Deep mutational scan, measured.
Amino acid sequence: NQASVVANQLIPISTHLTLVMMRSEVVTPVGIPAEDIPRLVSMQVNRAVPLGTTLMPDMVKGYA
Rank of each mutant, 00 (worst) to 15 (best):
M56L: 10
T28D: 12
V45N: 02
P57I: 05
V20N: 15
L10W: 12
N46D: 11
A64P: 10
M43D: 04
M56K: 10
V5E: 00
L10A: 15
N46L: 15
A7Q: 01
G52Q: 02
N8T: 13
R47K: 15
G31E: 01
A48R: 14
M59V: 06
A3C: 07
T28F: 15
P57H: 09
I37E: 00
G31K: 01
S24L: 07
Q9D: 08
A64W: 09
V49H: 02
R47C: 09
P12S: 08
S14F: 15
T53D: 13
M21H: 09
P38W: 15
P33N: 11
R23K: 13
Q2H: 12
I37Q: 05
M21D: 04
A34S: 13
R39W: 09
V26P: 07
R39M: 09
G31Q: 00
V30S: 13
L19M: 14
T15C: 06
K61W: 14
E35V: 15
V49D: 02
H16E: 10
M56A: 08
A3M: 13
N8A: 15
R23W: 04
R47Q: 09
V6T: 06
L10M: 11
V30A: 13
I37K: 05
A48N: 15
P38D: 10
T18A: 09
V20R: 14
M43S: 06
P12A: 10
L51A: 15
V5A: 13
P38F: 10
V30H: 12
D58C: 06
A64G: 12
T15W: 07
E35R: 14
R23G: 08
M59D: 12
Y63T: 03
M59H: 11
I32Y: 02
V41C: 05
L51E: 15
T53F: 11
A34G: 12
V45Y: 00
P12W: 04
T18G: 04
L40S: 00
I11A: 01
V60W: 03
Y63R: 03
P57V: 07
G62E: 10
E35M: 12
T53L: 09
V27S: 05
T54A: 07
A3V: 08
R47Y: 10
T15F: 07
I37P: 01
S42T: 13
Q9G: 04
M56C: 05
A7L: 03
A34R: 06
S14A: 14
L40W: 03
L51K: 12
Q44W: 05
T53M: 12
S42R: 13
D36I: 05
I37L: 14
P50V: 07
M22D: 01
V20W: 13
L19P: 13
N46H: 07
A48G: 10
D36L: 13
V26I: 14
P50R: 12
P57L: 04
S14M: 15
R23D: 06
V41L: 12
L10G: 13
N46A: 14
L19V: 07
R47T: 13
M59A: 08
V45D: 01
A34M: 07
G52L: 04
L17M: 06
I37M: 14
L17Y: 03
L40H: 01
Q2C: 09
Q44G: 04
L17V: 02
V60D: 01
L17C: 03
L40M: 06
N46E: 08
L55I: 14
M43R: 09
V27G: 02
L40T: 01
P33Y: 06
